[in-house]
């Protein structure tokens, strides 16, 4: 038989569903695809296709302000990732391992930054760093990025906590007890048995924190000063004059980085599930 009949649950093999899936894909990705497409358009005004070019990317590479913003973004994302993973994993471990007063309240509070609207977080950060605890001005790079980084950590680390806790739920506690029984102290057992189990979650959490930080605009916009412009904020300021091919190119770069990191994260989690 070259072609057997579709089973009752093989919806994906019937044309109405295929059509629907195609329409959804188009709706989701057409704007993004046209953005990337026009970043290679030779035309100055992004209306008509006038030929393929790398010019806009070359021009980006020469734009000193944009490069600075890009380096700022990467620096902030790196610092955010580092701190978020450590804080997030520790919070997850504490919630998983210990019983303590107000544990329930802590549990709820920790996921609050995920659900609080970003604009509120932004305003809160503005007020906080503006009046309550002003970040010192005129610090040398990279310390001038401190306020933004702290803001990013606040909304990134709960995501790490969520991912790590999900992973901890599948941890067999007898593994840790076995390590203790074989002579490991508490910290040694954590390092030798719990952390290897958490590795995929830590990597996924790190990538999540990195991408969240890298493309955050709203909260950054409220905490950024004139000398601490990040890549998304810079793109926004470029758009305010006009949507130029440079903007398209810069957005494409940001998108590419985000997609690559996300794919990497999914792959790392996927291989782990296959190993289970």
């Amino acid at each position: 038989m070259s072609r057997d009949r579709a089973g009752p649950l093989d919806y994906a093999r019937r044309w109405p569903l295929r059509l629907w899936v195609g329409a959804v894909m188009l709706f989701l990705y057409l704007p993004l695809a046209s953005l990337v497409l026009f970043s290679f358009d030779a035309s100055r005004r992004t209306i008509r296709w006038e030929g393929f070019t790398f010019d806009w990317y070359v021009r980006l590479a020469g734009d000193q302000a944009l490069i600075t913003a890009f380096v700022n973004s990467l620096t902030i994302a790196a610092m955010t990732t580092l701190v978020s993973v450590v804080l997030g994993a520790m919070a997850a471990l504490a919630l998983w391992r210990f019983r303590f007063p107000l544990r329930g309240a802590f549990d709820g509070a920790i996921t609050l930054p995920i659900v609080v609207p970003e604009i509120c977080m932004g305003v809160a950060m503005l007020v906080f760093f503006g009046t309550i605890a002003p970040w010192p001005r005129d610090l040398a790079w990279p310390f001038d990025l401190g306020a933004i980084t702290i803001a990013h950590i606040t909304f990134s680390f709960p995501f790490v906590t969520v991912v790590v806790r999900a992973r901890l739920a599948s941890f067999n506690r007898e593994l840790e007890e076995a390590a203790r029984d074989l002579g490991a102290g508490e910290l040694r057992a954590l390092r030798d048995v719990v952390l290897p189990h958490l590795r995929p979650a830590l990597i996924a959490g790190a990538l999540l924190a990195f991408t969240l930080s890298l493309d955050d605009f709203v909260i950054t916009f409220f905490t950024a000063g004139p000398n601490t412009v990040t890549f998304p904020v810079k793109i926004y300021s470029m758009v305010r004059f006009s949507v130029t091919p440079e903007v398209n190119a810069a957005s494409s770069v940001l998108m590419a980085i985000t997609i690559i990191l996300t794919l990497l994260g999914m792959k790392l989690q996927g291989t782990d599930m296959a190993g289970k």
Binding site: E177, A178, D181, L182
Partner: peptide, 20 residues
């Protein structure tokens, strides 16, 4: 005396073999 200092060792019900 914590478990790691006792002269006993255990075979766990789930075996608890370190998967990594």
């Amino acid at each position: 005396t914590p478990p790691n200092r006792r002269p006993v060792n255990m075979v766990f019900q789930s075996y608890a073999v370190f998967p990594h």
